[in-house]
């Protein structure tokens, strides 16, 4: 036995052959594009020069330009506001649902399973559904609010600058709840029941048990849920593009949708690339925290 083990170890470098195809694939279709995008952001590329080999060098001009562009600043702030609001609501609702379904009653497992569906639906469809619900004349939300006497006239949710962001956040929270719920549920199952039993013996109340046992022991789970949630929410694209396309009057542009607009609607490829790189840098900074949190797991 011992001999085989040693032999295996000596041939460890064979392992690279298994990984290489996937790695090369990712280098070609992701690694190269990233580098290309960085280069692009330091050039001045238009439709005419897009496929030509010689592209004029622009230095930092694109970055200087975008930071003086009010729509970019607005998009950056929008992305932050959107992300923070979504995280807060989806985390709280997801957490409450996880606690609720952690009780072992008849329908707990089945219903919790069904609640995952919103997360799996293609985001384009989710966007369409919420566009329908938030519709001015056709939307059921306006009808419900009217019949409850909360509003007198229909609200133009998606076409008014004050409310469009709210509609987007609602839609995204709907997608995010299952993700938060299931990860926290899994975290809850790792807490040994004996801890709760001895806490009960010591006369600890439910609230006290929650803050003294559940919350501290869930900390690693909570960290990774929030960091992953941040990454996923911050790069939001499809939802906003389909529901509002950044409108009305740029009030809901996110970094991703604004970058898309610059590149594929206005054909300012280099400015679009610069915006995308700002988005990338922010995500990478947050990503470092994620890597640190999961370091042991991926050793």
């Amino acid at each position: 036995m011992k001999k085989t083990r040693k032999r295996l170890f000596a041939y460890d470098n064979v392992g690279i052959l298994f990984v290489l195809p996937a790695f090369v694939y990712m280098l070609v279709f992701v690694g190269y594009p990233i580098v290309r995008n960085i280069v692009l952001s330091f050039q001045d590329v238009t439709v005419r020069t897009l496929t030509k080999p010689d592209k004029p060098f622009a230095g930092l001009q694109n970055y200087i330009d975008i930071f003086q562009d009010p729509v970019f600043i607005r998009s950056l702030l929008n992305t932050l506001i959107f992300t923070v609001c979504c995280l807060v609501f989806q985390f709280i609702i997801g957490f409450l649902l996880a606690l609720f379904f952690n009780q072992n009653f008849k329908t707990s497992k089945v219903v919790r399973g069904l609640l995952l569906i919103p997360w799996m639906i293609p985001i384009t469809v989710t966007a369409l559904i919420f566009k329908f619900i938030f519709g001015t004349d056709v939307g059921i939300l306006n009808y419900a609010l009217q019949s409850l006497g909360l509003i007198k006239e229909n609200i133009d949710w998606l076409t008014s600058t004050n409310t469009a962001m709210f509609a987007l956040i609602c839609a995204n929270v709907w997608i995010g709840i299952p993700f938060n719920m299931i990860l926290i549920s899994t975290g809850l199952t790792t807490i040994p029941t004996e801890l709760y039993e001895s806490a009960a013996l010591d006369g600890a109340g439910k609230v006290q048990t929650f803050f003294k046992i559940t919350l501290p022991l869930l900390r690693p789970t909570i960290e990774s849920v929030l960091i992953l949630g941040f990454i996923y929410t911050f790069k939001v694209y499809d939802l906003v593009y389909v529901m509002t396309s950044g409108g009305p009057v740029n009030s809901t542009h996110m970094l991703s949708t604004y970058s898309y607009k610059l590149s594929f609607e206005l054909f300012k490829y280099s400015k679009g690339a610069a915006v995308a790189n700002v988005l990338l840098v922010i995500l990478l900074i947050v990503g470092v925290f994620y890597l640190r949190a999961t370091k042991e797991e991926n050793e």
Binding site: Y32, N37, L255, S256, G272, L283, Y290
Partner: peptide
């Protein structure tokens, strides 16, 4: 973690 916006134009 990459946002799709970074990859679209170069792809």
């Amino acid at each position: 973690m990459l946002p799709v916006a970074v990859l679209l134009t170069p792809m």
